[in-house]
């Protein structure tokens, strides 16, 4: 009869395999790590495309559905022209900057996750 502390058994099993090895060897755990990264980046890509679609599609549909908005003038320039020839550009830059920041955050989160000991 041998009595051992529960943690002794853990010590005998050896050290936990690092996540990088799981990924390299394409074990099921490695696949989980990878799909978490890909899923977060894919969600971001879809979100950005959806925002672009809503903004551009919205401007296009507004012309068809609310013809009255075309009559609005700001400083002599018709509102649709102001929107599509000027204001839409800073908006696109803003979306792009946020997309870059979020993509880098996702990658940092993944790096931290994988490097965790």
């Amino acid at each position: 009869m041998r009595i051992t502390h529960p943690r002794t058994e853990a010590a005998r099993r050896g050290p936990v395999r690092p996540p990088t090895r799981e990924i390299d060897e394409q074990t099921p755990i490695g696949e989980v790590y990878m799909s978490s990264l890909i899923r977060s980046q894919r969600r971001l890509a879809i979100l950005v495309c959806a925002v672009v679609a809503v903004v551009l599609g919205g401007i296009a549909l507004a012309g068809a559905l609310v013809p009255r908005y075309a009559a609005v003038r700001i400083m002599g320039i018709p509102l649709p022209w102001l929107l599509l020839a000027m204001l839409v550009y800073p908006l696109l830059i803003g979306i792009a900057a946020l997309a870059v920041r979020q993509a880098e955050r996702n990658e940092r989160a993944f790096t931290d996750l994988v490097r965790r000991r």
């Binding site: 971001l44 890509a45 950005v48 495309c49 672009v52 696109l92 979306i95 792009a96 997309a99």
Partner: peptide, 9 residues
């Protein structure tokens, strides 16, 4: 906007 889609995807 094509570059924005390219950037994201």
């Amino acid at each position: 906007a094509g570059y924005l889609v390219l950037l994201a995807v």
